[in-house]
Design a protein around this nucleic acid. Structure first.
Lengths: 356, 356
DNA sequence: TTGTAGGCGTTATCAG
DNA sequence: CTGATAACGCCTACAA
């Protein structure tokens, strides 16, 4: 014979704390059936006010807490959202989580995180282990060909892609306006009178980096500035690559009068290199970045950059996900782009330009 | 009549992707019973090798994924660990999570995070909503009287307190050696010849701040330096409070020759204030901090500080939790303190001292 | 070595 | 408005 339920207490007395209180205990204590108790506790179905009171009393007295496993087995809902992240830098990471957790919490949802997923295969695997644990998943992937990524992803639950710049049918997508941000920054430099603007690229295949490069090119073109491809320097988002790029820049002639790095870290590396060489920033060469990482405002000169509201992106992801979860069938594909904000500090040479 | 199971396919054919594959489908497809399938998939009980192969094949073919809700309802294990955090600064946050997630993942566990819990009441509430979702919880609380916190915490599952400096019976505790770190740093300053060392405190009631203050005092006392309580300045871990503290310091006479801030942010604020006043750091006043936040190495002069390996703390927390989960009854209380590391850069004046 | 079937705690259907 | 009970998917004690 199989396992037998073993309940040493059957009356309306307080159960031993070592054993979990179930809905049946509440039923017994209140004198109603489990069905009625369930209805009261979930606010489903019609119940007499008097009954509601009695059941609530019993539940409170016994300190009843529904077993979530049983509940989700029955409803096939977990009230949990998953978050898949690459192994990225701290600040970015915590901001997304913050935004996601905050919003999820306010909707009665929990957040299951899983990091260190860089390849489509790893993401697919992580997604598999999340099956049944979550009602929806937000995925953040650094790979630029997200189409392939999503192609063989199990799609049993709602998915939202964050900053993947993928255009896959049926999957919600939230992107950062890298192109627009880079465009605005480039335009800003042009406005300040800079003409030979170099650009330090992101890693090969990185979607963010490529979109930023695109914005930079577009701005130059729209301004009628003949663009010199030799001004596009290689980089990999690491500080050191910005340093090297700046060193290289110094050997060019005519020397560029501005350097736009695809992210802040590289911009900081570039500034170090320029200072070492005795080149003044921003007087001789303006330097700007992208991301607005915390350090940006502390370095000298304070870095002009492009800010992205990461927490807001996370919050929006949760809302999209919850909508998809709640309206499985009539959920229409979401595809949004988040605006960026130009942060003008000192390194772009805005003060010098005004003085001219 | 209640809900009826609706399975349109009964043979060994591939099921429609819209419907979840259950262990029964695998049983049917492989020609064995669900019990045998379960045994194979869990490696429990004796099974003929041939059978193992056949069952595995069927499971793979059907892309079977166990329903975790059903599994945990049956085993009362979720294979998930919870993490409760206060609303703290990004870097710290992400490091803990990183350490926890990495270790949990390598043990087949998932991580459920929940942030923004500052009061004991909020923590208790968050813990309640996690009941049944997790097998254990790591709690990080900023309140210094953690005893009270834990007192009325439901203890149905294993708990580990991170950096709470609480000494509560039955609860595992992992602490950072704030006292030792501050002691070492103070000693370091004394060794470099500094004698009037001021200290900027943390927020009132913050355990970290108080322990650091304690280490500072102990080092002075052990060195036989008469301690002047007016050298202990108020602070709240924010950069601005470090700025104000340094301004105040400038008005003292004789002026201190060193400033030890209870965290890096305040140290950075202090450096700004000193530079504004034309005071040289570290020649006139050495400035040091605690935490080793990323910015620390970038400011000028590079900040000497005390480093804490947060990720390691998180990793250890997971191990302790898993042990408690696996050995419910014979788990002996864990109480550990994590060593800190002195990071000597330029702001403590080590170079000047050598030259003397 | 394998199969049978009850139980895990909830929800929801249907009858009263 | 309330009660009885099948089903959710899996594990496991026991029988074979």
């Amino acid at each position: 014979m199989p396992r037998v339920r073993n309940h040493p207490f059957a009356g309306p007395l307080t159960p031993p704390s070592s054993m979990a209180v179930t809905i049946r205990d509440v039923a017994r204590a209140s004198g109603f059936s489990v069905a009625t108790v369930s209805r009261v506790l979930n606010g489903s179905g019609p119940v007499k006010p008097e009954t509601v009171r009695k059941v609530r009393d019993a539940a409170t007295r016994l300190r009843f807490t529904p077993n979530v496993a049983a509940r989700s087995l029955s409803t096939s809902r977990t009230h949990t959202l998953g978050v898949l992240l690459p192994d990225l830098h701290g600040e970015f990471f915590s901001e997304v989580i913050r935004g996601i957790d905050q919003t999820a919490q306010s909707h009665g949802y929990h957040v299951l995180v899983s990091s260190s997923h860089n390849s489509p295969a790893e993401i697919a695997a992580a997604l598999a282990t999340m099956r049944g644990r979550v009602d929806g998943v937000a995925i953040m992937s650094p790979v630029s060909n997200a189409e392939a990524l999503v192609a063989d992803l199990p799609r049993s639950i709602p998915l939202v892609l964050l900053n993947c710049s993928a255009d896959v049918a049926g999957v919600d997508t939230l992107d950062i306006d890298n192109h627009g941000g880079a465009y605005a920054m480039t335009r800003h430099l042009l406005t300040l009178g800079r003409r030979r603007i170099a650009f330090v690229r992101g890693p090969k295949g990185n979607a963010d980096g490529e979109a930023r490069l695109g914005g930079y090119r577009a701005a130059l073109e729209d301004a009628g500035v003949v663009h010199d491809r030799t001004l596009e320097l290689d980089g990999d988002f690491q500080e050191l690559s910005g340093y090297h790029a700046a060193k290289h820049l110094l050997s060019m002639s005519p020397r560029p009068d501005a350097l736009f790095a695809a992210n802040d870290s590289m911009a900081i590396g570039a500034i170090s290199a320029l200072r070492e060489a005795g080149v003044r920033v921003p007087e001789d060469v303006a330097v700007v970045g992208f991301d607005d990482i915390p350090i940006a405002r502390y370095i000298l000169p304070a870095l002009s950059t492009v800010r992205v509201d990461i927490a807001k992106l996370g919050a929006r992801a949760v809302k999209v996900l919850l909508h998809a979860v709640g309206h499985r069938n009539e959920h229409t594909r979401v595809r949004e782009t988040f605006a960026t904000e130009l942060v003008v500090r000192a390194s772009c040479g805005v003060e010098q330009a005004v003085g001219r």
